[in-house]
Design a protein around this nucleic acid. Structure first.
Length: 952
RNA sequence: GGGCGCGUAGUCUAGUGGUUAUGACGUCACCCUGACACGGUGAAGGUCGCCAGUUCGAAUCUGGCCGCGCCCA
């Protein structure tokens, strides 16, 4: 760290910003901690006050004033301000060394953040804080997205409630109305992001419609236009008749729906009896029919091809044609051809150029207004027209029959309106040439997807990619940078809005009235936020970005397109790794979604539980990359764990001597206390796994390891064992070593926990002696600070296992908790005997036995004692005199071991196993069988001694 | 209809050829033991969806079936 300050236990950044805290190397006693509610009468404080001597007084403990539970509200805002004031998250301009950069997927100003956003945020912040602590120049760019159509629809709906139709406003009024909404939501989103404690660089905040984004979008459009990758053309598009705009293929959801399939007779034009029977779910489109098509090989209609029929109600003559695209098994095997209103029909019509040119029958709201529509139906909407045409057909005797029919219907993602395929003039991006480098990038591993299993889906979509319709007929969005010349009819496409036509020089120009699909801007987010198209320093320093974290639901909308834009406009992949998060589900297993209204506002959860608990709960225990439930139990778990950490520090504080220096790796040798060697070894193992998991995009694994290590190894086992040494009862050198070890491991655990629970760890870190201003900018310490020590791990396992066995016996024999009976152990080997001899006192204390006697191999079992047989040997515990001999557990154990033994013996009896399995495996099984047999024998001895003969 | 993925204790989950199948939540019993009852200790709970196959050996590999989910038509 640059400055060695700190020591002031609870800096209040509102009064004392961290960089102005006077250097004070004091003891870490907490001063002025707010009283968090009445302390319960029971507990340590009360006991100490009442007792003759507070434990630890003899060794100079200091009373901690941290309350037993932490109150997130009391600390979170304070640290958020401290981080902000110290510019901790502002990425340096010209950093040496490694870079780590990310963009926050810009939340849509359509709404506010959901818990899903917090999930992504928790993952990103973990990565950002981890890299920052590792010393990488770290940049995480915040911003919001104008979310074109989505926001427009939302505002449109809101205005409609107030009785205002947005279509009736002027363009300027409509834009102003949407922009007011945007500002309101933008403010709330920023507030939410602050409340989450995310380490975003707010100095680089961006908006997808700010000046830079406008310039980037315009530049990209012009470049693509000049390359011929953007073109205008009359194509069949997905038309949303409610919003009266085209939408892209991705914005159409296909839904299974039930419809009426009508069999309609088209009479022969020559007056012959009969006609062609055609099945359709859309009889109202018959006014646009130009033909009836049958399959060329369909024998039923061989004579029909070339004849003419009359379109019912419209009374027009159309030919019967043959086309291989017709499915002869569907309906009657004849298809009416309405080229302006069905993509398949259009394809067929294009193959038959002699057909009459198709007529438009719908207006932009899908009302029947075309010239070919009989007066009876003119002005009707699609649904009414469908009913009326069926009625009319029935009246005219042309409706043969109807049947129910399930088929999939395209609905607009935004308005839920049934999409009307419509031939219209739109702007498109040619995708295949843009997709190729992105496909290659993923294939070569230049871009990696995590979890990997999503790559096939990615390739499938990319390889079948269609051109992208980018024009929208709404006011809200980036204007299409094209001017149409009224004089010569040509387009002028330039970076700056032109004052005259580039072709004829006329000044009579009309700007294109449409706007761009919102993704035409967001696909450039990773570099547009860094200043592109200008050659900025940020772009040079921080592009390409490192990781993109997002939900799988926008892989095609956004992730794939960012790759395309990245390669096209910067020549590079926009990021090297993509991490997909899962979707959260509510308590009932339903997806959390805005429409269901089952995602709480993160602000409310944070107010109630704290940002740390919320974020931690996002990562644990359910895997981040899988869909999974999220609710109160998960939050409770996170809160409980953080309270555990809090109390671990509360326990540690009194053992920090006044004036203690910041924690350093303790001097450890093979003569050190076993528990100290062990916890250091365990810490090292955990730290290595955490680092490995983070590097491998497995945040849940990192958090799981932390949770297990801190709670079980450190708090449950180490602290309990170390209490003896910490009480000074094992002598001064051991006390010093143990204090140093405790402080070191606790402090280093806070460091590794910080990316996942930044506020509470920051608070606790400041309560301990520390070097530097903030944990957020402290070092990610190397794992080899703590020595690997497999020997200590094995030895400690024996100690812990002995304790567990004796506790188990206590419970089974219903030994009263106040009793401390004598116990015996017959170790299975000399190493275990050694360890237990040295750690006798620890075992006795934690198993609450009055003495622990080690038995030799030939010593008889203590009479009347309850016993267990385990791999490490046999444990005996004096049975309460009143208790009946309980041998159920022993019998259960025997049954289990016998079953295992059978299995191993069967394997050994198998000649094939002996012949083909590796000899090491055979030896292992032999050893295991010997051991099992020995244990069964001992159990039998024991049962005989206890007077209950072994079963079987 | 096509593609992809997933089925492990009541729930969620770890585990890519040899482990007495991991952990969390929940459940049961005992316990307010010098930080934590948002806690401690111990226990119970699984034919690893089903059926075949490969292999000396399968939760793990292959095939089929059943169920669920997602994406695309």
């Amino acid at each position: 760290m640059v400055r060695d300050r700190g020591g002031d236990p609870r800096p209040d950044p509102r009064r004392d910003p961290p960089d102005r805290v006077p250097p004070a190397r004091g003891h870490a006693r907490l001063l002025g901690a707010p009283d968090h509610g009445p302390h319960r009468a029971r507990g340590a404080g009360a006991r100490r006050a009442a007792g003759p001597r507070a434990p630890g007084e003899a060794v100079g403990l200091t009373e901690s004033t941290l309350p037993p539970r932490f109150d997130p509200k009391a600390i979170e805002a304070r640290w958020q301000e401290a981080w902000a004031r110290s510019d901790a998250f502002r990425a340096p301009a010209h950093p040496p060394g490694a870079r780590f950069s990310m963009v926050l997927p810009p939340p849509n100003v359509t709404g506010v953040l959901t818990l899903g956003h917090v999930l992504g945020g928790a993952v990103m912040d973990a990565l950002a804080r981890w890299h920052r602590m590792r010393g990488d120049a770290t940049l995480w760019v915040p911003g919001v997205d104008h979310a074109g159509l989505a926001t427009y629809v939302e505002v449109r709906r809101r205005l409609a409630k107030e009785g205002v139709r947005i279509e009736e406003l002027t363009r300027e009024e409509a834009i102003a109305a949407v922009d007011r909404w945007r500002q309101d939501h933008e403010r709330r989103i920023v507030e939410q992001l602050h409340a989450g404690g995310f380490s975003l660089d707010w100095s680089r905040y961006r908006y997808t419609m700010d000046a830079g984004s406008l310039r980037a979008t315009r530049t990209a459009f012009v470049a693509l236009y000049q390359d011929g990758l953007v073109y205008r053309g009359e194509r069949m598009v997905n038309w949303d008749p409610v919003l009266r705009t085209a939408v892209s293929d991705l914005e159409v959801q296909s839904v299974e729906e039930e419809a009426t399939l009508a069999y309609v007779r088209y009479p022969w034009a020559d007056g012959t009896l009969g006609g062609m029977e055609v099945a359709t779910v859309r009889p109202e489109t018959m006014f646009g029919d130009v033909a009836i098509a049958v399959h060329p090989d369909d024998a039923r209609y061989a004579d029909a091809v070339g004849r003419y029929v009359i379109v019912p109600l419209a009374h027009r003559r159309v030919p019967v044609i043959a086309d291989a695209a017709v499915d002869p098994t569907f309906g009657a095997g004849a298809l009416k051809i309405t080229p302006r209103h069905d993509p398949v029909d259009r394809e067929i019509a294009l193959r038959h150029p002699d057909l009459a040119s198709p007529v438009e029958i719908f207006d932009e709201s899908a009302r029947l207004t075309g010239s070919g529509v009989p007066a009876e139906f003119r002005g009707l909407d699609r649904a009414t027209a469908r009913t009326r045409t069926l009625e009319a057909l029935e009246r005219d005797g042309l409706l043969v029959r109807t049947e129910r029919y399930r088929h999939s219907v395209g609905r607009s993602e935004r308005s839920n309106a049934v999409i009307e395929p419509r031939l219209s003039m739109q702007w498109f991006v040619r995708m295949a040439p843009l997709a190729a480098p992105a496909i290659a990038g993923v294939r070569s591993g230049e871009i990696r997807l995590h979890p990997e299993r999503w790559t096939p889906t990615f390739f499938r979509w990319m390889e079948g990619i269609q051109d992208w319709c980018i024009s929208r007929q709404v006011p809200w969005g980036h204007p299409i940078p094209v001017a149409h010349c009224r004089a010569c009819g040509q387009d002028t496409v330039t970076l700056e809005p032109p004052s005259q036509c580039a072709h004829c020089g006329s000044r009579d120009l009309a700007p294109d009235p449409d706007v761009l699909d919102t993704w035409m801007t967001s696909w450039m987010w990773p570099f547009a936020t860094l200043g592109w198209p200008e050659k900025t320093e940020d772009l040079a320093e921080y592009y390409p970005t490192s990781v993109l974290v997002t939900g799988r639901d926008i892989v095609f909308f956004w992730v794939a397109r960012m790759m395309m834009a990245g390669y096209r406009f910067t020549g590079r992949a926009p990021f090297s790794d993509v991490y997909f998060t899962g979707m959260l589900q509510d308590d009932q297993g339903r997806k959390m979604s805005k429409s269901l209204g089952n995602s709480p506002d993160p602000i409310d959860v944070i107010a109630e539980r704290g940002a740390d608990a919320l974020r931690f709960a996002m990562l644990f225990p359910n895997p981040v990359s899988e869909d999974g439930p999220f609710g109160a139990p998960t939050l409770d778990g996170a809160r409980n764990f953080l309270t555990k950490v809090w109390n671990l520090v509360r326990f540690t504080l009194p053992h920090v001597p006044p004036g203690a220096p910041p924690p350093a790796p303790p001097e450890i040798s093979t003569s050190s206390a076993l528990e100290n060697r062990w916890i250091l070894a365990r810490y090292r193992r955990a730290a290595e796994e955490i680092d490995h998991a983070l590097a491998g995009f497995e945040p849940t694994r990192a958090v799981t390891v932390l949770h297990g290590f801190v709670w079980h190894d450190l708090a449950d086992r180490y602290v309990e064992v170390a209490k003896e040494a910490l009480g000074g009862r094992r002598g001064d050198p051991v006390l010093r070593e143990t204090r140093a070890t405790l402080l070191f491991v606790v402090e280093r655990s806070l460091r590794r926990l910080h990316p996942f629970a930044p506020h509470v760890t920051e608070e606790l870190w400041h309560a301990l002696p520390h070097d530097g201003d903030l944990l957020a900018t402290a070092r990610w310490t190397p794992t080899d600070e703590a020595p690997a020590d497999p020997e200590a791990e094995v030895a400690m396992e024996s100690v812990l296992e002995t304790i567990r066995l004796l506790r188990n016996l206590r419970a089974e024999e219903q030994v009263p908790s106040s009793a401390t009976p004598p116990a015996w152990v017959r170790p299975a080997g000399p190493e275990i005997a050694d360890v237990l001899a040295r750690e006798q006192a620890t075992v006795a204390r934690l198993a609450r036995v009055t003495s622990l006697t080690l038995l030799g191999a030939t010593d008889p079992a203590p009479a009347g004692a309850a016993g267990r047989v385990a791999p490490l040997g046999e444990c005996y515990l004096e049975r309460p005199t009143a208790a009946p001999a309980a041998s159920e557990a022993l019998l259960r154990e025997r049954a289990k071991l016998t079953a295992l033994l059978e299995k191993e013996r069967a394997r050994l009896a198998d000649a094939g196993f002996r012949a083909r399995a590796p000899s090491s495996v055979v030896a292992e099984v032999e050893e295991k069988a010997r051991d099992l047999a020995e244990r069964v024998r001992r159990i039998d001895d024991h049962l005989r001694a206890a007077g209950s003969p072994p079963a079987g």
